[in-house]
Simulated assay, not measured.
Amino acid sequence: MKSVRLTECARMPRRYGRLHLLHSTVDAYGRAHWLLTERAPGTADPYDALVVTADRGDVYETHLSAVRLYRPRLDALPDGGFVLADTRSKPDEQHVQVFDALGRSSWTFRVGDAIEHLLADTSGALWVGYFDEGVYGDDPLSHPGLRRWSSTGEPLWSFSPGPGPLDMSDCLALNVDGTTAWACPYMHHPLIEVRADGSVRVRTTRVSRVSGLAVDGGRVAFLDLDDVLTYGRITERTVEPEPGAARLVRPDGRALAGRSTVCRGPRIHVRERGGTDWSVLDIGDGDE
């Protein structure tokens, strides 16, 4: 099997290495963000945090005050603010905090338990994908498996199961491009396209064990749990496989050692487990 090398795209400056990394992401505009604290949160007391942002060679800081979340996910909003959400929560917990561009907490609300993906789109809306413990758990907010919320906590759209492959036991992979979301859920692994107006298109696929996906026009790449990429052409009702597959590897050609992904349009951003730096595969580059 041939290999496809990632390309280095964002490196956290070394001067922040002494701080504790809570979460990191790549936003809708390609900027990398790292959520840092002096130490890991250990109590329910509010704490201060620092967001370091890398934007095309520039690095800047945003200081967040009175963070109340124990294990938050992070994304950036178009107005310069940030949204944080705890992965797990109880039904009475306001586990989402929105911060303005000055780092002040402005909104708190909840979006449901068992968050697998938290991605803001270019309008500022939040796409939230849930894993199985949310879909089948006690919090009804999580039961749809995929939802879109406003940045003030108003529900905008939720997934509804249908006949055949249209189910959502676990939102395995989520890609947000502009204001459109692409998802690949367990168990039939359809490719689901959701536009901002709530319209949904479903295509059947022949993939499984998906952990990331990239979409470029009529072409899609699926990344599985073994770091193997498979490609397909998007038709009216199906994704037709392209011949061949490739293994995704580090920029230096070595195998990946565990990783997380953030998927945006034609790009799959990869951060290895325990690391801080981001690499990227762009299927629009035409060199895979």
Rank of each mutant, 00 (worst) to 15 (best):
P78H: 10
S160P: 01
G153P: 08
V202C: 09
V96G: 01
L248N: 08
T108A: 15
G103I: 00
L102W: 06
A44P: 07
R250L: 03
L64S: 05
P251W: 09
G17H: 14
R206T: 11
A101T: 09
L77Q: 08
P243T: 12
E236W: 04
P91A: 02
P140W: 11
R110S: 15
L35C: 13
P140A: 13
G57F: 01
R15A: 02
D170S: 13
V194D: 02
I115G: 09
R39L: 10
W34E: 03
G112V: 05
G124D: 04
H143Y: 06
W157M: 14
P161Q: 07
A257S: 12
L191Q: 07
S106Y: 06
A257E: 14
V51P: 15
R271K: 14
F82Q: 06
V135K: 00
V210N: 08
G30Y: 00
S151H: 11
R237V: 03
E93C: 00
G284H: 02
L166P: 06
R271Y: 09
L22A: 03
D86N: 15
S199T: 03
Y16C: 06
E38G: 05
S24H: 07
M168N: 14
S158C: 09
C9A: 03
A196Q: 11
V96F: 10
P140I: 06
V280S: 01
T204S: 15
D170Y: 14
M1I: 10
G30T: 05
M1Y: 13
G103C: 09
P165D: 13
R203L: 11
R18V: 08
D113E: 06
A10P: 07
V59M: 02
S199Q: 14
G162N: 07
T238A: 13
L64W: 06
A181K: 09
P46L: 04
D75I: 00
N175W: 01
S260P: 02
P41A: 02
F222K: 00
E8V: 15
R247S: 10
L77C: 02
G284K: 03
S65M: 08
V128L: 09
G17F: 07
G284Y: 02
S260H: 12
D277Y: 05
G284N: 05
V239M: 04
L174K: 14
D197M: 08
R209H: 14
G275V: 05
P46I: 13
R73D: 02
I192H: 06
R88L: 15
L146P: 10
D113H: 03
V26S: 01
S150H: 00
L225M: 11
D48K: 09
L146Q: 12
A101W: 10
Y130N: 08
R195P: 00
